[in-house]
Design a protein around this nucleic acid. Sequence first.
DNA 1: GGGCGTACACTTTTT
DNA 2: GTGTACGCCC
Length: 805
Amino acid sequence: MNQLENRYLKAKRALFIKAYSQKLNPEQSRAVFTTEGPLLVLAGAGSGKTTVLVNRIAFIIKYGDAYFSDAVPDFTTEADVLALENAINMTPSEISQILPEFIHRPCPPWQVLAITFTNKAAREIKERLSRTFDDATVTDAIWAGTFHSVCMRILRKYGERLGYRDGFSIYDTDDQKRLITICMKELSIDEKRLAPKAVANAISRAKDRLITPDEFEITHDPRTRDILKVYKLYEKKLMEYNAVDFDDIIMKTVELLTCDAEVREYYQSKFKYVLVDEYQDTNHAQFVLTELLSGKHRNIMVVGDDDQSIYRFRGATVENILNFDKTYPDSTVIKLEQNYRSTENILNAANAVIGHNDDRHAKRLWCDKGEGEKIVLREAYDQHDEGRYIIDKINRAVSNEGRKYSDFAILYRVNELARSLETSFTKSGVPYRVLGATRFYDRKEIKDVVAYLSVVSSPFDNLRLKRIINEPKRKIGAATVEAVEEIANLEGTSMYSVLSRAYEYTALAKSADKLSDFVRMIEKIKSEHTLPSEIMSALFTETGYEAMLKAEGFEGEGKIDNVKEFISAAIEYEKRCEEVDALPTLSGFLEEISLISDVDKYDEGADAVVLMTIHAAKGLEFPVVFLAGMEDGIFPSQQNMADPAEMSEERRLAYVAITRAKEKLYITYAKNRTMYGRTNYGILSSFVREEIPTTLIMRDMPRREPPRSAATNHYTRPTPPTYRREYLSELNRPSEILRPTVQKSKASSFGVEQLPVGTRVNHTAFGDGEILNAKEMGGDVLYEVKFDTGVTKRLMATFAKLRKI
DNA sequence: GGGCGTACACTTTTT
DNA sequence: GTGTACGCCC
């Protein structure tokens, strides 16, 4: 390389860094500009990982590999180089005017693939990119999606090469367990000796590791023999039913890319740049998948934090991130250690805990935010006392410090803790939402509608057919269904095919009318409608499902509302398709709803406290975090306390929990806790007791102990918060707040204004509803409100800011 | 074939 | 404490 070329490259690099890294720190800039070759970015919690991902994609699309390629344009002259060298003194905007003229080698957006774990993360990347590119077609062309959605896109296109037929179904863990139970029955394997759940888990772990039934190892444990038998039959049935489970979505895509050279070549050429988020949580199958997809150009960038690997129980292997530099000896490794989220006290606590783990990439988070407040530790008498304490702290901060309810998150190790917390919240009237407790798509009525849709979409789906063939009751009993299944097995056809020819079989003579009616009904709906929402509406009424729910009365009404909400989700899906000029299809809609989770729907806009597990909170941040149930046996979990590898994972989970907090962290634990109907005595978690330095902690002592009536479920009013004027205006709520003023409620002997039964009201968290019942209680009013979402809540007037509509 | 009563299970769960 | 799954009986 001659002198001129050297100067050219040097000047170019300096300029790019100056022009494009204004908002980035030096490590972040390096990660953005290192576009070529394998790159590992170790991004600590809150270190601006998404910023790097988004900027890097934008940089690649705008400038491609120009910057780091050693190519020097032919036209480079002494004058060009001088111009570049002089440009270093220019302002960034002046530079950006000059640069594109010199070096401009954009990468087409469809050559970029960004893989995340959650839809939320994918959506965030797309949203931030759309702010960079005015042209929506650019953002739409980038493949940014979850592992599963990316693979489904490939499978929908080439799945037929593996034997899948149009409209194949996606089985969730519930369907998977059902099918495994069916297989075990067929194989006469005793469910008492071998739990279907354990088999499901074993098969999932095998698929995570790309182990086919042929490669499945039988150990000295006799149960592995049975597991293998089930695995084989399960696979056979999945194929027959034209269905994949969640693990198949990855595994079958790997199989396709491995075995089909044409498909592999197509995608390997297509994806010039591959970016993988949350790499520490990838399993072996996902590791191989990313290897395959990036195999040709080798421009693979992985971002992650080995300290935040918390899905080992689902097959994630931290080794993928720990060994990346060994897998790719020519890789670049960049560490992001500056944290932009939390204060020093919080970070030091997190660092202290995670420091007890070995076998990790050494790194230490730092920040320039200052010490901040100490971590508040509170011992509660029991779970009710714990709930009251948390609510009291929230109410005080909302009244006195100008906090919003949405500034608070309550995190816990197990969903079970949400139960008692929810009771406390309902009584207090503080708006709250529980994430992940009962998932919308896990509701029976929704799953039934999905089953109907699956039958319409794919006639081979026997599992879903069996779910709804007699729901609502059509007098088609288990014996008939079994006979149909047997015929289908003998003929090698689907049950639906047998149903459509029911009169041909003497064995079905008695029920042939009913079976034919069923098929005729499905076929009629199929022929009359094409839009998912129309099919759903037709199914809902014509199958008699709606009538069945109506007959259920009160509870059925809620279910009807849920189905209607589900239908509106389909309408929204159709609208979205229209926007991008795509055809709305039933299988497309079914795919979308199969691959969506609760956290994806977490709406940061609503002003309500959010309750969720630590797992669900990963990737999120909150000004104030309460870490509840911090007792040995709960966190760390009893089951994991003996195993060092599991303890490391618990510790990483604690690290994730602590680093969610931006300004203030509360840790609470209860001396007595009733769980699953049993009361246990608890002591403070060893993570706090032994690992967080006491200098970072301030103990908040209860005023008296034990609190009066703490053991009973009695409601004790928290200190009445004084609401500031500004608070009301902040909420931008012009209409009257239907809450007695503090003065009024103190003067309880005069009673409080009580809304008549039947009044329509609005609640910040639960939406609109109707008052079912109103009862005076201790100078306050306890309302029972049925919300339009179907839930009925009991709320105290003083705290539930109900607004008359 | 449907309804009711009694066991039993119950970490975490991005998809 | 609560939800679900299965078995028994009508």
